[in-house]
Amino acid sequence: MKVWVVLRRELIGHFLSPIAWVVAVMFAIASAFFFEIHTLGRTVASLGSVYESTWWVFIVAFPALTMGTLAAEFRNGTIETLATDPVRDGDIVLGKFFGVMAFFVVSLLPLLFFWGLLRWAGGNPDPGPLLSGLFGMLLAGGLCAAIGIFSSSITSNQTIAFGVAFLMLLVLRLSDIPQPIELPTWLRVTLDYIDLPAHLRGFYRGRIALDDLIYFLSSTALFLFLSTRFLESRRWA
């Protein structure tokens, strides 16, 4: 399977890249920090606030993890050997995507440690919300990764790829920010619908809703599809 071949090289790249490790450490520190102030501070045995706050780390972390995925192939010219070897463009994009996701899963491991800590300290977190919350984080991570890869597919400049992904992820959070200005209804409704953290809340409470699932899976698929098309069309120019 070619996806696996691309994924493996991608992982080597991530594990050798200082940026990826900085991101992993960011995940760990952010989780620890929020864990402390939200969970221990309030003595509520729930990791929900940890998830919610980790979202802000996502907005920086995913653009950083994904900015090089395709942009660097274009910049280094390696796209020319990759795209002329017998590999489909879709396999390239999926390989990159699962490479980012594999690294992401590894950086989530500290959360398991915190959960163990909570148990050991006598807390009794409900495993339902914990697991569905983790699942939600994976889905949200998948969408962020897809958006990041998409941004990386439209440019050979990693900084631009980072900026575009960052802005797009910020838009997904706009409706949560109190609005001082009156917005037209359609815009308000749209912003509410695309609001990513809103779709995560159900998962934190242990509820996996179909519309949330559809939101994450369809938008992830859409951005991966767009990345494939951009990868294709940029070679053609």
Partner: peptide, 11 residues
């Protein structure tokens, strides 16, 4: 195929 720029993955 060997492209003119000989692209490689430095890592």
């Amino acid at each position: 195929y060997l492209p003119e720029s000989v692209p490689l993955y430095p890592e």
